[in-house]
Nucleic acid binder design. Structure first.
Length: 886
RNA sequence: GGGAGCUUAGCUCAGCUGGUUCAGAGCAUCUGUCUUACAAACAGAGGGUCACAGGUUCGAACCCUGUAGCUCCCACCA
């Protein structure tokens, strides 16, 4: 067979993904095995995968593939989220490009466009997930607007309403004037900015309605809201203002007379100590308004322009109105001063350029306290385990203990429409269907059932539900747990095994899933949560469209191959920490694929060169690698258990590159033109298979490809389903022997290098050791690896040679070239000094009675061993130095 | 304002229960090599006062306290 010079990623990926699909390896059905279940954090249906997703999906696929290879019934449920605000915004933009305004469409027409859009772009995200090699069960795709899912959301809303956990109320909410919708507190992102603080003078009137000639100066960042002022507030202990009790202030521009109120909410040291109170447009002012029964004047329209109530600048955008207001105030001499001021502004997470407005409106809320309590306990009591560590425990706890009610209505069309109907008197009927709502209405009006004429009596709420109100049901409803309670799937797959997600959505999603799971399934939704870090660019900045630092995943896959992308993103991703993404790590992944490819080529070369010859020369290498493999497998078990996946990958990388390729293959490589023993060949192929197996979850394509190239496979013998063997105990003796061989070889090569002996220059090697047996079985390896013409054992120093000491053994290198021993002697001196200091430290410790008494026997024993080892080495080095002097 | 975390080689980070064969990895750098799988490679090397100052301990990168710098989360004083 002719093998290509390099590994070709694209063709292999295409071929094997199709093969796996055809064989149905991703498919999962309940059976007698233990399930291992993962539900994907559903990405936005019309989105594309970014690097954060790439990391998440890769991690999930690694866990799923390894579980599959360990005999679990692995089930990974894919799907996507309707992302109401983001998707609706994109559809609105798309329509605008076609010169269609959303306002000119009916709800039904708009939704038709939206579904068209979803059909057109909704598949992109799935094809990208496939490109990455993810082994999802594609027969289980769920979308949060699927019919059953829609019904589940409605059912839960209705149920919570019945339980009194959902209610409608007027509240100060965060308003996105671009999307024209309410946002939950969590959807607001604050940015630090340089703001401006304007000092404005309000004239004062006494209780008789007479201007006093005095004035009071307030400080504000938002002068355009002064038209909504309904009070001025000062601290009751503020001496400057005490005499003004009972006075009124005159609001400029609108000449409104408002009371002066006294409340210790006001900080006398800030600004002028006087606060303008605008209950409609500030949460704190709103609370003051409630306390003092102030009028609420809403001076803004829903699109962020000034409303009729503002009286001036009506219809003008809020920011332009701010400039105009300032100009007028300045003209009228009411602007005392303006200063720059560091502030924070809230932006809409869904429209990042849009400043959020606090606004009063009637919305639907979920009462959180009762739901939060059990969800808090589930985590604090360890029922749900969070990785890494307890780092998020404190924040989770704090949030859950201080949780506020959740605003779930959104003024959009794309989403589950709130199942609440209103009659002409404003009474509310919540039901899963309009028919049921009408029935309720009929009963409330003393009828047994509604007559056909009554249809049209009720009007459904126009709003839809927050997307998170659907995604919090995800681990249940993907198995129809809400709409078909107790079905076979939900019983088998729930609770899921692990949730892999970003730490940024711990409150949006993770906490709420736990609440919903406990409420509706009476069980946690997952056993473990693994938080990945944020993917940043190599300068540590967030990936964002505006910075242009977010790479195109498909392009990266084209360039490096999916395996290399998976490798690159994972290798630089320490558990739970942010990772700085750098394409050089992808390159490292591509090189790794190539290394594997070349190793395979080498082994294949030997396939034709097998002979039934004794393999005693290879025993050493075979023994050593067997145990090295066991050792690494054990490590991997632990690392996987703790979700330290990047370390696991490093272990495998080094096992393959260093131990297998650089040492093992060189050790068993037959001499030029010679044959390899059939037994050693067989073991080598078997080792290779085991390595590919360990690596497979991380780099599925290249490993499957090589697995099939290594030898002929029968139908169904695919790496993806090959079961991992039980891990056996490694023999420390064998590992130690390997370490010794490597140390000796490296030291000898170093000595050659330092003495400018070319790799081709032959040498004669003499070994002075008390245990020649230890070297007998690696003689042939040694000779080949350091290019020695001959190897002898000796009982005395060889004069005129290079000397080096490894452990207690001495090595002498004889070469044609005269040896320059100066460097060698310096090295020996340096080693000697280190060993002496080391010994002194050990002796001091052992001489310390309190150490010997307090430390554990194993530690003391280890110190004794260190002592004797160091002594032996010092003796050997000293002897070498002395013999060199003679 | 409150809380959490971080600070180890030029860069990115490991270092889990304190014990000098434990100060490590990858990348980068330097030297040598086209050695019969791989120059996308091979063989080697150099490089660190473990942020700073104290303390606990027989013993500290690791535990405690304080200081400085950075990051994130929460709260939102106009």
């Amino acid at each position: 067979m002719e093998l290509a010079k390099n590994y070709e990623a694209a063709a292999a990926a295409e071929k094997w993904y199709q093969h796996w699909m055809e064989r149905g390896y991703f498919r999962s059905e309940p059976d007698e095995r233990t399930p291992y279940t993962v539900v994907i954090p559903p990405p936005n249906v019309t989105g594309v995968l970014h690097m954060g997703h790439t990391l998440n999906e890769t991690v999930q696929d690694i866990l799923i593939r390894r579980a599959r290879m360990k005999g679990y019934n692995a089930c990974w449920v894919p799907g996507s989220d309707h992302a109401s605000i983001a998707t609706e915004a994109r559809v609105v933009n798309m329509l605008r490009e076609k010169n269609i305004e959303k306002s000119s469409l009916s709800r039904e027409e708009f939704l038709r466009y939206a579904f068209e859009w979803k059909e057109k772009y909704g598949g992109i995200i799935y094809s990208q997930i496939r490109k990455l090699g993810c082994s999802c069960d594609w027969e289980r795709v769920n979308f949060t607007m699927d019919d059953h899912y829609y019904r589940a959301v409605i059912k839960v809303f209705t149920d919570l309403y019945r339980k009194g956990l959902v209610y409608r109320g007027a509240r100060m909410i965060n308003w996105d004037p671009k999307a024209k919708t309410a946002l939950s507190d969590e959807e607001v992102e604050y940015k630090d900015l340089e703001g401006k603080l304007y000092y404005v003078r309000y004239a004062l009137e006494d209780g008789e309605g007479q201007l006093t000639g005095e004035s009071i100066t307030i400080a504000t960042q938002r002068p355009e809201t002064i038209m909504g002022d309904t009070a001025v507030c000062v601290n009751p202990d503020d001496e400057r203002y005490k005499h003004l009790s009972g006075h009124f202030a005159i609001i400029p521009l609108v000449n409104r007379r408002v009371p002066l109120i006294f409340d210790d909410y006001v900080d006398p040291s800030f600004g002028t100590g006087a606060l303008k109170v605008t209950p409609a447009h500030d949460i704190n002012d709103y609370n003051l308004g409630l306390k003092y029964n102030l009028e609420v004047i809403d001076t803004l329209n829903e699109d962020g322009t000034l409303s009729d109530a503002a009286q001036v600048f009506v219809g003008m955008d809020r920011f332009l109105a701010r400039e105009k207001t300032v100009a007028v105030l300045r003209e009228q001499g009411l602007l005392v001063k303006e200063e720059t001021y560091p502030t924070r502004l809230g932006y809409s997470q869904r429209n990042p350029d849009t400043v959020v407005e606090p606004r009063i409106s009637t919305q639907w809320f979920v009462k959180m306290r009762e739901l939060a309590q059990p969800a808090l306990e589930a985590v604090t009591q360890g029922d749900v385990k969070i990785y890494p560590g307890d780092r998020f425990m404190a924040t989770y706890k704090y949030w859950m203990e201080n949780v506020k009610d959740w605003c779930i209505s959104r003024q959009l069309w794309w989403g589950q429409r709130i199942p609440a109907w209103y009659d002409g008197d404003g009474n509310i009927y919540v039901a899963e269907t309009e028919t049921e709502a009408l029935q309720q209405w009929a009963e409330a009006n003393g009828k047994e059932e509604p007559s056909p004429a009554d249809v049209g009596q009720l009007r459904q709420d126009d709003d839809v539900l927050d997307t998170w109100f659907s995604s919090w049901l995800w681990p249940m409803e993907v198995f129809r747990g809400i709409t078909e309670p107790g079905n076979a799937d939900i019983r088998y797959y729930y609770p899921t095994s692990v949730l892999v997600t970003g730490q940024d959505i711990i409150f949006f999603w993770v906490a709420r899933m736990i609440m919903a799971g406990l409420e509706y399934e009476h069980q946690k939704p997952f056993h473990e949560v693994y938080f990945t870090g944020m993917v940043r660019d190599k300068l540590g900045r967030k990936m964002s469209k505006s910075l242009g630092n977010s790479p195109d995943l498909l392009q990266l896959i084209d360039q490096y191959g999916a395996d290399a992308v998976r490798f690159g993103i994972l290798i630089s991703s320490p558990a739970g920490n942010d990772l700085l993404f750098d394409e050089s790590s992808l390159e490292q992944g591509r090189f790794f694929c190539n290394k594997l490819w070349n190793a395979m080529k080498l082994v294949k070369l030997w396939e034709e060169r097998q002979a039934e010859i004794p393999d005693e020369n290879d025993n050493f290498a075979l023994q050593w690698f067997e145990h090295r493999l066991r050792e690494a497998s054990r490590q991997l078990e632990e690392l996987f258990r703790d979700f330290r996946l990047n370390e696991a990958l490093k272990v495998i990388y080094s096992l393959i590159w260093d131990d297998f390729c650089s040492w093992y293959l060189e050790w068993i490589k037959p001499a030029q033109g010679a044959s390899i023993s059939a037994a050693a060949y067989e073991r080598t192929v078997s080792f290779f298979e085991q390595l590919l197996q360990l690596l497979h979850p991380f780099m599925p394509f290249v490993t499957e490809e090589l697995y099939h190239l290594l030898r002929e496979r029968t139908e169904g013998d695919d790496l993806i389903v090959r079961q991992l063997p039980a891990v056996a105990e490694p023999d420390p003796q064998a590992l130690e022997q390997g370490r010794l061989a490597q140390t000796v070889i490296t030291a000898l090569r170093d000595a050659r290098n330092k003495n400018r002996l070319k790799p081709r220059d032959p040498i004669t090697l003499h070994i002075l050791t008390a245990q020649p047996a230890a070297y007998r079985e690696l003689e042939s390896i040694l000779v080949r690896q350091v290019n020695a013409g001959a190897l002898h054992y000796t009982d005395k120093a060889i004069t005129g040679s290079l000397t080096l000491v490894v452990d207690a053994d001495k090595f002498f290198i004889e070469a044609d070239k005269p040896a320059d021993t100066t460097a060698q002697r310096e090295q020996l001196q340096k080693d000697l000094l280190y060993q002496q200091q080391f010994l002194a430290a050990v002796e001091k410790k052992l001489g310390n009675e309190r150490f010997v008494q307090n430390a554990s026997p194993a530690v003391v024993e280890n110190e004794r061993k260190k002592k004797s080892d160091a002594e032996a080495r010092i003796k050997a080095i000293t002897e070498s130095l002395e013999s060199g002097e003679r």
